[in-house]
Write a protein that binds this DNA or RNA. Structure first.
Lengths: 291, 291
DNA sequence: GCATTTACCTGACTAAAGTCCGCTAAATGG
DNA sequence: CCATTTAGCGGACTTTAGTCAGGTAAATGC
């Protein structure tokens, strides 16, 4: 592989390591060792069970136990047995603990803000950060069927509409584009599949059916920050599998040649180009696939 | 500031911290504590003076001294007094040290490659990484006059030509666009200013003069990964100052409306739009500024 | 119902990292 | 030329992080 590319990666790592080191130094200025600060922050972030903390922070039982005792002695946390399993314990921040956690949060937030506000337009930088985050966390990406009306589905659809509008140089409006009846993208007639990393929406695709053997693929979208990872293929595969499970035997879809990545994908996944089958204004190319 | 943006930044930091932690674990598998490994790597990277090492690694004199003795005992480095100042010392990797350094390099490179090769097209990811690197290292960006024929100048001009070609949807060719005589972009008649981070070219601008009071601004360019940082303004200011020092009293330039960021900048920096003053095919808007 | 597992704690220990102080020898600056 | 500064070394020390073994009490599984 190109050494120049590797060097760019490593310069990146170095720059971020410096930034992370600076944040940790600011944490140390609170007078508490990093280990204890990390535990406090993890509790503040919602890892309240001792076992969750251990897993999240990757700590030895003995070490974590001692760190917890230390935070207790400082009056920052309280622990109590878990009522549903008296062997395990849960932790809770005290008022003082909340306050101290808030200080660490402020340090982290200020650090982030310091960088972001130096940019005239932080969106470009944040997109770059998302791209990196997604690439480094690709193993944590989940692809699954969700309700069409769920929070993550709505986020996907909003982002999809915004991008179409931009790419097609027109005020594209999802609502005007034969917006499918919600019930047709839900079991038992259809489905809606999303890819997400945590609560970040990375992509989606819907299958719109009416009980017939033929159904339609709608709302295929991949976040620009998540491209190149093969997510579109995984989404489509999941959607096709779901369609088979719903006794659908033929899928078809319409799209626009401007979305050239999508067009390429359909060709590579065994779809065949067919004649126009609707009179929507936006699509200009049509595909079909026998499952 | 928008908490959602800050969260994106912090998710990014977390993802990278995990990756850095994994790399450090792989370093530890070499059986040497991280402190010693870091010193060895710093020496391999070219920090040969003990004082440079101390500054780069931010270490106490005693601690560094002991780490150096440890590496010496392992036969990985040799140290000798600096001939020009016998108080200070320089280090050198032995053959064994070079070999061990190479192993760490391989670990780092493999780690980078593992991520990059998972991308169908790593360029998008690398651009994102560059964007982040530049944003985090903005204080290290230097803006200065260089020789038009220098390595960094050539890199800038190549990137500039590639981008123009892409933005103007045409096979733009620098050589065909009234390429200025090199001597006219050098002292005493003109100059060439670049912005760079290490050896990464971030932007450039040239002043092309012939000894007259009027000179021309050419080759204004900012790397897409370096936008939003106000570099264009700093470049132009540096170039204008240099022009004044060369007894130039009027600057003019041509550009293309497609390069809307540049057009906006000229308007904001006191340039006034003037009539076409040449018949080059690419420019379609012309400016002038009295210094 | 009793052996086994699980969750957590405690104490003893080690290794790594970092701090502080005093020292030497060379360079520097009136 | 002599007091002062600078660069680095080494010893004594503390803190932090991490490991390991043994123990207790609750839950689990046949």
């Amino acid at each position: 592989m190109d050494q120049d590319q590797i060097n760019r990666f490593r310069n990146f790592s170095r720059a971020v390591a410096v930034e992370i080191g600076a944040l940790e130094d600011s944490f140390l200025n609170r007078g508490r060792p990093l280990g204890a600060a990390r535990v406090l922050n993890a509790i503040g972030l919602g890892y309240v069970n001792v076992s969750d903390l251990r897993k999240f922070l990757n700590l030895d039982t003995g070490l974590l136990s001692r760190l917890l005792r230390g935070l207790e002695a400082e009056g920052l946390i309280e622990t109590q047995p878990n009522p549903s399993d008296l062997r395990s314990r849960t932790t809770r921040l005290t008022a003082r603990g909340e306050a101290e956690f808030a200080v660490y949060e402020t340090l982290s937030n200020d650090r982030a803000e310091r960088i972001l506000t130096k940019h005239k337009d932080a969106r470009h930088l944040l997109d770059a950060m998302d791209t990196v985050t997604i690439a480094l966390s690709r193993e944590d990406i989940v692809i699954h069927e969700v309700d069409y009306a769920s929070e993550v589905a709505r986020k996907c659809l909003t982002a999809f509409a915004a991008e179409l509008s931009h790419r097609l140089n027109s005020g594209f409006d999802l609502e005007n584009s034969g917006d499918p009846d919600l019930s047709q993208m839900q079991h038992p007639h259809g489905t809606f599949v999303v890819a997400q990393l945590g609560d970040m929406p990375l992509g989606c695709v819907g299958i719109k059916g009416d009980g017939a053997a033929m159904a339609e693929v709608k709302r295929m979208w991949i976040a620009p920050t998540a491209r190149g990872l093969g997510l579109a293929k995984r989404l489509m595969t999941t959607a096709e599998d779901a369609a088979r499970a719903l006794s659908i035997t033929t899928l078809r879809l319409d799209t626009n040649r401007m979305l050239y990545e999508a067009v390429g994908l359909y060709h590579s996944m065994g779809w065949t180009e067919i004649d126009r089958f609707n009179d929507d204004p936006y699509p200009d190319i049509f595909f079909e696939k026998i499952l």
